[in-house]
Design a protein around this nucleic acid. Structure first.
Lengths: 203, 203
DNA sequence: GACTAAAAACATACCGATTGGTATGTTTCG
DNA sequence: CGAAACATACCAATCGGTATGTTTTTAGTC
């Protein structure tokens, strides 16, 4: 009823896009689907977005806008040591992966996989979302490495990216096996790997 | 020009499907695309397949038919110890991952991710391809576990699935970062994890 | 082995539905 | 008022799929 409304429409489209693309995929999500989901019309859609590809890019950016505060405000951030926070992150992601499939899938990963050839701009935006998220882990990993005093066969950046690879792969595994169990299992392997790397086997 | 021809057409369609879906994705690969790629027509296509979804399922099965002998005949199979073969498998996959993007991507993973909601039958076929491939690793992993005499915090089956998760994730990472380097890096992490698990750090 | 009939393989032309997108409004609000 | 936000109606293109052929193999019979 006031100035919020103009922005809320765009946000409603983006939210619907995240939801639908996450479950059905980018190509299977039509503009009409978005309109029906939001109760808006095509006129409104094409007023806010130049086209479907533009929406895809915006959705990838919206995705980081949604997820970034989720991790920034997560309880594991209050843990004392950097290593505890890194492991806390993995545990946090594992706990998220217990829900139903469309709830814990990664929009960016889904899009990147699907549109990487047909819509490079979207894939690039999705890639930025993934690498950007990985970057938020680097500081803690780096600090944990330095604190441990050991030498590592890999960089913090590399390990951060690897965590994302395992998570993305876990999502595919969940979809392939029809349940989250295999995904949770794989994330446990990731946790164990980090523990082994840092030579800290206690829980 | 003889009895081969009848079967070669269907195979040509399947080969083209694997190639196109791997690069463009399932939805973005139209029946017309397949016809153009193979030089055939729609009449031929719909003679061999009930519909596009039927092709998708067949493509997933064709995928295992292609990849299974590739691994069964790979040099690492001749290594002596089970553990060496497991690590050899990982190295083999890492070496494959050096090529161009569409060459080392996994058709099954790509499809599962994309059509998991819209075409459950295809997703199921793709899932079977992945879990089936993972199953070929279980025997060696199991044997390696028993040979080592140690106790393990996970089953052979679980570790086998995890390797697939890392590989699938590595593919996404490759697409996200625009190059195979991050993927190869992630596969190295997987190798290191297995080494650490089996307490064998020498190369 | 020649002839034939049916069945499998393939081609052509087309269809209805849906797609992303546009043109042209009307409403809302600063 | 004027610009941004939204709605309605429509379009050309493309989609998967079908109907109807024509060609090629295969199988059976004499």
């Amino acid at each position: 009823m006031q100035t919020l409304k103009q922005h809320s429409s765009k946000r409603k489209i983006l939210d619907a896009a995240v939801k639908l693309i996450r479950t059905k995929g980018y190509a299977a999500t039509s503009v009409d689907d978005l309109c029906e989901e939001t109760g808006l019309t095509k006129g409104s859609f094409f007023h806010h977005f130049k086209g479907k590809e533009d929406l895809g890019i915006a959705a990838a950016e919206h995705w980081t806008a949604i997820t970034a505060p989720l991790f920034k405000g997560a309880p594991y951030q209050n843990l004392e040591t950097p290593l505890a926070r890194v492991l806390g992150y993995v545990d946090f992601r594992k706990s998220i992966a217990q829900g139903t499939l469309p709830e814990f899938t990664c929009l960016a990963g889904t899009m990147v996989q699907e549109v990487h050839t047909s819509h490079p701009a979207i894939a690039q935006a999705g890639g930025a979302a993934i690498t950007g998220h990985a970057a938020t882990l680097v500081a803690d990993i780096q600090a944990a490495m330095e604190e441990s005093g050991r030498t590592f066969p890999c960089t913090a950046q590399s390990l951060a990216l690897h965590t994302q690879a395992v998570l993305q792969g876990a999502f595919i595994l969940a979809k392939a096996t029809g349940g989250p169990d295999a995904a949770a299992d794989s994330i446990s392997h990731l946790r164990r790997y980090i523990e082994l790397l840092f030579d800290q086997t206690e829980e």
